[in-house]
Design a protein around this nucleic acid. Structure first.
Length: 220
DNA sequence: ATCAAGATTACCT
DNA sequence: GGTAATCTTGATA
């Protein structure tokens, strides 16, 4: 089945269904690698630039898992609050939070109702809408080719490039605004497993996963 | 009302 | 490699 908002070159791929997301956290985290995050755009942030794309897309190349039942670094460890309530729903919703007074981060809620588990999207490889991502990130043209690698190689950078913010808190990934497109699973040999980055609690859990040798991974 | 910490980034030496 | 910026959230009073 073709979805009308799916880019033409991805027409024969399927949008991930609820059943993908409601499986266990670590399973979903690993399998999200290689999949394609898509955001449709009704308007453009900078109208003075000519932008031909109506959607943004990027391959997921780095993720981290968070589980409030055992993991002190998870926002759900303290129980349900107004901020984290979406993480306690069943899988397939977007948990967006604001941090350090400047940055938004995107998470894919996983598992069953009440679990409080989610996967932080830490890095993407840009695939479509790159011109718009450049404007969203820098407000100008690229200075050099090297800057391409700085578009979506971090959780805050992804949200800036895709213009993801408070408005997208709780977005249903089974919907048509933000969703993820299926791709073949990445071979286990090409998945690197490490400790997570930028946290001060439960630092030894090996819950960061990234695609080996991908140049958009935030930290090697 | 006040406070400390934060799933980051950009810029500096 | 070090650190300032910046503001929301949740806890405590």
């Amino acid at each position: 089945m073709n979805n009308p908002v799916v880019p033409s070159f991805l027409k024969h791929s399927a949008k991930l269904k609820r059943e993908f997301y409601t499986r266990p956290l670590i399973t979903v985290a690993k399998e999200l690698l290689g999949k394609i995050l898509v955001k449709t755009e009704a308007t453009h942030a900078y109208t003075k630039y000519k932008i031909s794309h109506t959607f943004l897309a990027g391959k997921i190349v780095e993720v981290e898992a968070y589980d409030g039942s055992v993991d002190q670094a998870a926002h759900t460890f303290i129980g349900k609050t107004k901020r984290n309530e979406i993480m306690f729903r069943q899988g397939g919703y977007l948990y967006v939070y604001f941090t350090y007074g400047a940055h938004f981060c995107s998470n894919v809620v996983t598992g069953k109702e009440g679990q409080g588990t989610a996967v932080l999207i830490r890095a993407l490889e840009p695939i479509a809408g790159i011109e718009e991502m450049i404007i969203n990130r820098f407000g100008r043209d690229l200075k050099n080719e090297k800057e391409k690698l700085n578009l979506t190689n971090g959780p805050g950078k992804i949200c800036q490039a895709f213009n993801i913010n408070r408005d997208h808190y709780g977005a249903d990934l089974i919907g048509n605004e933000i969703f993820i497109i299926d791709q073949p699973a990445v071979n286990n040999k090409n998945i690197i497993i490490t400790k997570r980055i930028g946290i001060t609690k439960s630092i030894d859990l090996p819950w960061r996963f990234y695609i080996k040798d991908n140049p958009w991974v935030s930290v090697k």
